[in-house]
Amino acid sequence: MNDVAAAAGVALKTVSRVVNNEPGVNTATAERVQAAIDRLGYRRNDGARTLRQGRTSSIGLVIEDVADPFYSGLSRAVEDVALGHDYLVFTGSSGESPTRERDLVLAFCARRVDGLIIVPAGEDHEYLTPEVDAGIAAVFADRPPGAGPETDIVLCDNSSGSRAGVEHLIAHGHRRIAFLGDSPAIFTAQERLRGYRQALAAAGLPYEERLVAMGPGDQARVQADVERMLSSPEPPTALFTGNGRMTVATLRVFASLASFAPPGVRHGGGAEPMERPALVGFDDFELADLLKITVVAQDPVGLGRTAAELLFQRLSGDDGPPRRVELPTRLVDRGSGEVGPGS
């Protein structure tokens, strides 16, 4: 900046005003300063400027998996809100590892981010208490945190959405409905199972353990569970899948089973082909509309936007009590769940 001032023949304060778009510099002088800046290739040191202000103009975002389309939508929404506040976003994936989540969060804190948005992988967040006490703002998204500081939380209404999806299948005549969910240790998986059970109970249908399979969303596990259920003496006539990855894995199982009957042919046991079950999935996903898959759609963009807006309210000085926001889901019927058993 001293070189720019010397080249333009002005005081250092004048250069500072031009660089920071402050008033008090006449047009001719400002043009002379800008010409010197361009000639010398000067760039403002935003890091030093923000540190002097006590802020770094950055936030950290910890999600489960940056490759997951759900979290891609959430991340983009956080970035859009942050950009509107002239903030940068540092993003990392926990891979459902509490240790990796903790390491990422503390790494962001060590780099002096002003705030954090966290999709929690673990159930113990006491490690975050000293950071919050030191002034870092934090918001938890998609899942509530475990033990630790009280913060704002933004969730989707998982149980009601799951219940609506299962009730939709019941309304189309299904009485044997299987549930394929994520690991039971995950909050969203627990809530979606709860909604499934509520729908069965409200319809007077029994809950059968053999029609429920929960675990990792890898193809091999889903393949084994779907094939086991469909080859049983009393197979389910409908499946409710607990997230987008489960739905896609289930569709791959359907495609691999050459023994499915054409529409209208019932499963008769023995060597006869089985009927493809109805399907409703939790989470919309790319190409679901073309594949005509009925889903319970969340709003990942709304989730990310709401979490980011709450965070920036805190960064702007809002010191009110912690808030818990629950966003609604919606049923999108496209055909895969709108067929009755044997239709």
Rank of each mutant, 00 (worst) to 15 (best):
residue 2 N to L: 14
residue 3 D to H: 09
residue 7 A to R: 13
residue 9 G to A: 11
residue 14 T to R: 02
residue 15 V to Q: 03
residue 21 N to K: 15
residue 25 V to A: 03
residue 28 A to R: 15
residue 29 T to R: 01
residue 33 V to W: 06
residue 35 A to E: 13
residue 42 Y to P: 10
residue 44 R to H: 10
residue 49 R to Q: 13
residue 59 I to Y: 01
residue 74 L to D: 09
residue 74 L to C: 07
residue 84 G to I: 02
residue 88 L to T: 12
residue 94 S to N: 07
residue 97 S to P: 02
residue 98 P to N: 11
residue 98 P to E: 09
residue 99 T to G: 14
residue 107 A to M: 01
residue 112 R to W: 04
residue 113 V to H: 05
residue 118 I to N: 01
residue 118 I to R: 01
residue 124 D to Y: 12
residue 125 H to V: 08
residue 132 V to N: 08
residue 140 F to N: 01
residue 144 P to E: 08
residue 147 A to E: 14
residue 153 I to Y: 01
residue 154 V to A: 04
residue 154 V to S: 03
residue 164 A to I: 12
residue 166 V to A: 00
residue 170 I to E: 05
residue 175 R to E: 14
residue 181 G to Y: 07
residue 184 P to T: 11
residue 186 I to M: 11
residue 194 R to T: 08
residue 197 R to D: 06
residue 208 E to I: 02
residue 231 S to L: 12
residue 234 E to G: 11
residue 236 P to S: 13
residue 239 L to W: 04
residue 244 G to N: 12
residue 246 M to I: 13
residue 249 A to D: 03
residue 254 F to M: 14
residue 255 A to K: 06
residue 260 F to P: 07
residue 261 A to G: 09
residue 262 P to R: 15
residue 264 G to Y: 12
residue 268 G to K: 11
residue 281 G to K: 00
residue 283 D to L: 05
residue 291 L to K: 06
residue 294 T to S: 15
residue 299 D to R: 04
residue 303 L to T: 00
residue 304 G to P: 05
residue 309 E to T: 15
residue 310 L to H: 05
residue 315 L to R: 07
residue 327 L to N: 06
residue 329 T to Y: 02
residue 332 V to A: 06
residue 332 V to S: 07
residue 333 D to A: 15
residue 336 S to H: 03
residue 338 E to I: 02
residue 339 V to K: 08
